[in-house]
Structures are given as C-alpha cells and as structure tokens.
Amino acid sequence: MTRSSLENIELFVQTIAQTALDNEKYFTELDGVVGDGDLGISLASGFGAILEQWDTLDHNSGESFLVGCAKIISRNIGGTSGSLWRAAFRHAGKSISGKETLTSGDVVTMFRSAADGIMDRGGANLGDKTLLDALVPAVDAFEKSIQNGVNTQQAIDTAAKTAREQTEVSKAWVAKRGRASYTGDRSKDTYDAGAVAIATMAENVATAWTKS
C-alpha cells in the first residue's frame, strides 16, 4: 500500500511519540546518571500531549501538522529541551512548506532542517555528546543509502542502525553541552540519554515502516 507523504509523516510522529511514552522510565534513568533526570518525563509529557491532541492538530499539510506538533511540544516540555524539540519539528515543517508529495531529497532536507534547528537553539555541535551525535549520522546514512539507490525501508534500517552505533561510540565521550556537561569527566562511559532516545525512536520507525 502506498502512503501519502503526509501519512508517512504521521506514521513517523506517531511512532516516535509512542516510543517516548513507552520509554519514559528508561530515558529518565539514563538521564539521571549525569543529567538532571527529566528527559524521560519531558519527552513523555510533550509527545503524550501530541497523541492526546492528535485529532485537533491541523492535518491539512505536512507543514501545518509538524508546526502544530512544535507548538504542542513548546507548551508541554519546559526549559531548553522543550525549545530544542520544538525547533526540530518547526524547522522540519517549514522546510517542506507548500510541498504535498515529498521526494527522498525533501525528506533528507527535512531531517537536516530538524538537526539545524536543534543546533541553532542549543548551540551544540557534533561531538559535544548530545542527541545530534545520533541524529546527524543517521540522516547522513539515510541520504547516502538513497543516493545509492536502495529502497526507503533499507534506508531507514541503515539510518536506525547508524543512530544506535553512534550512540555507542559517543558513550565514551565527555559531554560538552547540556546539563550533563556540568559533570565533566563523570559523563564518560555513560550514555547520552538524548542520543539513546533518537536511536530507539529510529529503530521503532524502521519496525513500524515494515509492518505497515
């Protein structure tokens, strides 16, 4: 069955939202090691609100849907992480303004815009041990797969695998941004909870894509 681009976006958002709800405790525990221990609660609260308000969101276009999600996130996740996730959704939505059917190139641009939005708000760069260290390599892998002519499912699978691998790689690093950075060397050999969240979300998107 072929889904429209909007339906694909909806499937994607629904899957990552459910992931956030299902892993509230796990993400919070991870974040508690060196962060301030609110990541799981924050994500569950923001994405839970998206699922609750699903029917009242504007589903007319990918843009309006994603910008609407951004608005819900900003009202339900406090502090900096609310701003980062909001920026990801808003930038992603704005990047596909006026487009009904997305090419794979548009999808790459959409995810790059999301990552840029996070960088812009958080001031983090690659290597700072944040969720970007899972997200950006995953987008790179997705783009490369598409360029190599593989199908969407394979590209998503590769992206998810890359996100997980890079999360493992970044585990050894010292956090340079976010609350975890205050602990300095203690952040070594602990997972960045945001990166784990991205990897888990990507894996669940890959699974959801297969099923549907």
Partner: peptide, 13 residues
C-alpha cells in the same frame, strides 16, 4: 540559554 530560547521561540510564533 533558557531565556534566549523562550524569547526566540515566542518571537517566531
């Protein structure tokens, strides 16, 4: 950081 983010986000909306 937190104030910047809140005000930049608000300005966009």
């Amino acid at each position: 950081t937190g104030d910047r983010a809140a005000f930049r986000d608000a300005a966009e909306e």
